[in-house]
Amino acid sequence: MDIPDVKEKWIGKINEITIGATKEDGGTRTSVVKVGGHTTLPFLTFEGEMGNKPVVAGFISDVVPDWPDAVKKAIGDEINNPVEWAQKNVEEFGVDLISLKLIGADPAGKDASPDECAKVVEDVLKGVGVPLIIWGCGDDEKDNAVLPPCSQVAKGENCLIGSAKETNYMTIVAICKADKHKIISEAPVDINIGKQVNILLQDAGFDLKDVVMYQTTAALGYGFDYVYTILERARIAGLKGDELMAAPQICDVAGETYRVKEAVADEDVLPGWGTIEKRAPMWEAVCANVYLQAGADILILAHPDAISITKEVIDRSMQ
């Protein structure tokens, strides 16, 4: 008797999404990024096609984030200028695209004006040729004011813009439809809300084949396993044919890692934990590499060592 075939047979396919537009497609990017297209769980190529390999987006922000000195030093002085930081990400760190977070727009912080933010977007687009992900500051009201001009200056560039939430999605749908961008749909580590946001985007007339899902991101030790299981469950649902869950997924690893004490406190605070210079990028890299296994397609990273480790792991896993 033959040994029964126990391989999973998936019927669904994760949507393939292109970010960025070259001259031929009405943009000015020198390269584009494709994600998704999988017919199997990550790297299990004996059960289906892996499709496009996961990509690394280099984190940049309009104001310098509140990160440990060791991380800022590893990135270099360029961290003080978003364009230079973006260029260093592309030229030296070798990222596939740039993720710009407009932290400066936060009303509780610098409270940068929509025009100031749009100028940063414009400058970054001029400064680098790779595709761009644009995030607001996370304050719904301010983001609804900031993102429209940012979208406009990037019109035709096929950026990925975040984020649409259950309680705030109409503005982003309108600008992304008008200026031809892709959308990040966000849910708070909640698969049901994640699905609901996608239904709302579809109801608002947005094509789900232009959506990337963001289940927020947790750093190792702070709900990491919750996010992992949600990414995995969403991916399984997509592969099982749930078209509402067939979107590629994004993780803001850098943004979350440098908020937890294990990745920011030096040895004097955490005796026996090793130097912050080594531990910070390791914490970031470990988070990124585990999320790869859960079904992350775009990983936002900052530390050059975390970027190089993760790129190497992706390349080896794809072999």
Partner: peptide, 14 residues
């Protein structure tokens, strides 16, 4: 067998 969302009925009928 499928993932809950508040609009699961409407989503099926789309």
């Amino acid at each position: 067998k499928s993932i809950y969302a508040d609009s699961y009925i409407e989503a099926f009928k789309k």
